[in-house]
């Protein structure tokens, strides 16, 4: 365990360094956009991971929390002139609170019923915002352009500040998960995931821990909502509560390998560039071939690498190790 811990910590640090150095290669605006999408969906995937990968509650409605967070900070900044940074904090707290209230009845649901319940939640909240005049209804809200800088959370000349903000968010989330994984909470989450009834029988307060998982996941997702709102300076129900956001979040996490810290980051690091690059290269043909490739990729991955990228890495690692051992054994025999 000790050695594992050190290795994981080293990996985290290495990640941070790689993350910080990436922009040296990514000099064009579009490659910076891809980096921003990678960190954004990595954070979203990690948030999903807390709920689904660790506590076993599969959500396909994260857009509910995402959109809510985007709206909280945007309403605060457009209507009351609150700084987006404070807005981001409020967004996190508000979505976490909302998720706790919603989570109470939802924690009764299990497995697929929960998953489809989250789809329902995402759709319902979208309809509410579409018809709520005070927040702009279907027209949404525009965040006025301001002078760029960290004070306004708007950067026009380069996208790198957005990237670093996202990266900071990602590292904070990873650090939180690192601690969580080693705490009692992490074990309780896993116990609930493996078998709720047994966990409960062993004295784990399952409703409380489920609610914590939902609230933390929703809070982080809500903060990401603020991030995208500041990135595009526009919120609209059709946009922020879009079902495809929920699907992409789940895809990223599962693709990378859920239930461990590194999976969603890897998933996002592969899936987002594929999605963006295929669109850039093939999308303008208007034939849909870019999304065909994307879909086929996911299917192939499920068939041949069902454990996700992490599983793939582990297997490759194991086979290298086995090979080395075999060679070692052969050498022993020879001598």
């Amino acid at each position: 365990m000790q050695r594992d811990d050190i290795r994981n910590l080293a990996m985290l640090v290495a990640f941070a360094i790689i993350g910080l150095l990436f922009p040296i290669v990514a000099t064009t605006r579009f490659s910076q956009h891809i980096l921003v999408m990678v960190v954004l969906y990595a954070v979203l995937g990690e948030a999903w991971n807390i709920m689904a990968g660790y506590a076993g509650m599969v959500s396909i409605g994260q857009a509910a929390f995402f959109g809510l967070g985007a709206y909280v900070s945007s309403v605060l900044s457009v209507k009351y002139g609150v700084s987006p940074w404070l807005g981001m904090l409020c967004a996190g707290l508000a979505t976490a609170a909302f998720a706790t209230v919603i989570g109470l009845p939802f924690s009764r649901l299990r497995g697929r019923y929960f998953a489809i319940g989250t789809i329902a939640l995402g759709q319902m909240i979208k309809v509410v915002f579409e018809n709520w005049q005070w927040v702009g209804a279907a027209t949404g809200l525009m965040i006025p352009l301001a002078n760029q800088g960290f004070a306004s959370f708007q950067f026009h000349a380069s996208k790198l500040p957005y990237y670093y903000t996202g990266l900071a968010l990602l590292l904070l989330t990873l650090a939180f998960m690192y601690i969580m994984e080693r705490s009692k909470m992490g074990y309780y989450f896993k116990a609930i995931r493996e078998n709720e009834d047994v966990a409960s029988g062993l004295g784990v307060n399952r409703t409380a821990y489920k609610l914590i998982a939902i609230a933390v996941s929703a809070g982080i997702t809500g903060m990401c909502g603020t991030f995208l709102a500041q990135y595009s300076l526009y919120v609209e129900p059709e946009y922020m509560f879009n079902h495809s956001i929920s699907v992409t979040i789940a895809l990223v996490a599962v693709f990378g390998g859920s239930g461990n810290i590194i999976g969603p980051v890897l998933g996002s690091a592969i899936l987002m560039p594929i999605s963006e690059l295929t669109r850039a290269w093939l999308g303008s043909s208007g034939t849909g071939i870019d999304l065909m490739i994307y879909g086929a990729f996911i299917v192939l991955m499920c068939v041949y690498e069902p454990e996700g990228l992490v599983g793939m890495a582990r297997r490759i690692g194991a086979s290298i190790k086995a090979q080395r051992e075999r060679r070692g054994a052969a050498r022993c025999q020879n001598s």
């Binding site: 579009f30 956009h33 990135y231």
Partner: peptide, 11 residues
Amino acid sequence: DPTQGMAETER
């Protein structure tokens, strides 16, 4: 999609 619309325009 608004995000992709923005990204494509920038690209």
